[in-house]
């Protein structure tokens, strides 16, 4: 019986090897796998659900994304006609310092028009993802989101984590007087905006209508039992420290 099984196994192995020669060849060729990178457990982004709990990268829905690289949380645009719908546009206005241009954008929750202070107020008021320190990102933070598209004509952002990003400009909170469209230099002051369609930044006048993706600095998020595993040890410690 043992001899029979041994011979049967030899025959099976020969059949298997002969049908999988191509695969074996590639294994021994040691081609760098494009899957390897995608299966990296310490991936830069982590999805956070409505309550701010981390969920697995292949699950959904999610409302925020924790960015391990920048150690901040991004508020992900939606398409649900909420104040965080990525279709809405805003003029740039800082209410605290009364800088910028009020209410020159379009949204459905402010009849007289919308500016960046409105969406910031909404995020704080509604405690999106259980976070209440939402702000406009710095230019460096927004630029750090830019990455080469994986397909021709794709957006310059990780679209699986930021699915509703618009093909327009996104405001940062960084002021500048170097307004790019030369015809608008008489407006003197503006802020840096980043386009994920072109993967470039430029300075736009405050009155322009652009989109917004808010960020929040690290803070004590509500941690589920699985949270520390999903966020990684280093990050979860950082959260508790704060």
């Amino acid at each position: 019986m043992f001899s029979f099984l041994k011979r049967f196994l030899v025959l099976s192995m020969i059949t298997l090897v002969s049908t999988q020669l191509g695969t074996l060849y590639r294994i021994f060729q040691s081609v760098p796998s494009i899957v390897t990178a995608s299966e990296d457990k310490e991936y830069r982004f982590v999805k956070l659900n409505e309550q701010g709990y981390a969920i697995s990268n292949d699950k959904g829905p999610w409302h925020c994304v924790y960015d391990r690289e920048l150690d901040i949380v991004w508020l992900v645009g939606r398409d649900d006609e909420s104040p965080f719908d990525s279709y809405w546009s805003y003029s740039w206005f800082n209410k605290e310092h009364s800088v910028g241009v009020k209410e020159r954008g379009t949204c459905n929750y402010n009849e007289t028009g919308c500016d960046t202070s409105h969406v910031q107020q909404q995020a704080i008021k509604r405690k999106a993802c259980n976070i209440s320190n939402w702000r406009l990102p710095y230019a460096e933070e927004l630029i750090a989101l830019v990455q080469t598209p994986t397909k021709a004509g794709g957006l310059f952002i990780q679209h699986a984590f930021f699915p509703h990003v618009q093909k327009g400009d996104y405001w940062s909170q960084t002021h500048s007087s170097r307004i790019n469209p030369s015809a608008l230099t008489h407006l003197k002051q503006g802020a840096v905006a980043v386009s994920f369609k072109h993967g470039k930044s430029r300075v736009l006048p405050f009155r322009n209508a652009a989109h917004v993706m808010l960020v929040a600095d690290k803070q004590a998020l509500p941690l589920s039992p699985h949270q520390s595993v999903l966020l990684g040890k280093k990050q979860s410690i950082a959260y508790f420290k704060n």
Binding site: S38, N57, T150, K151, G153, H159, A160, K167
Partner: peptide, 23 residues
């Protein structure tokens, strides 16, 4: 086309099958 690299978090991977760019 040639297979595109997989994107982490994407629901489906389609290798070389892609849509032309849309506006």
């Amino acid at each position: 086309s040639k297979p595109v690299p997989p994107v982490v978090g994407a629901a489906r991977y389609t290798a070389g099958y892609q849509q032309d760019k849309d506006m």
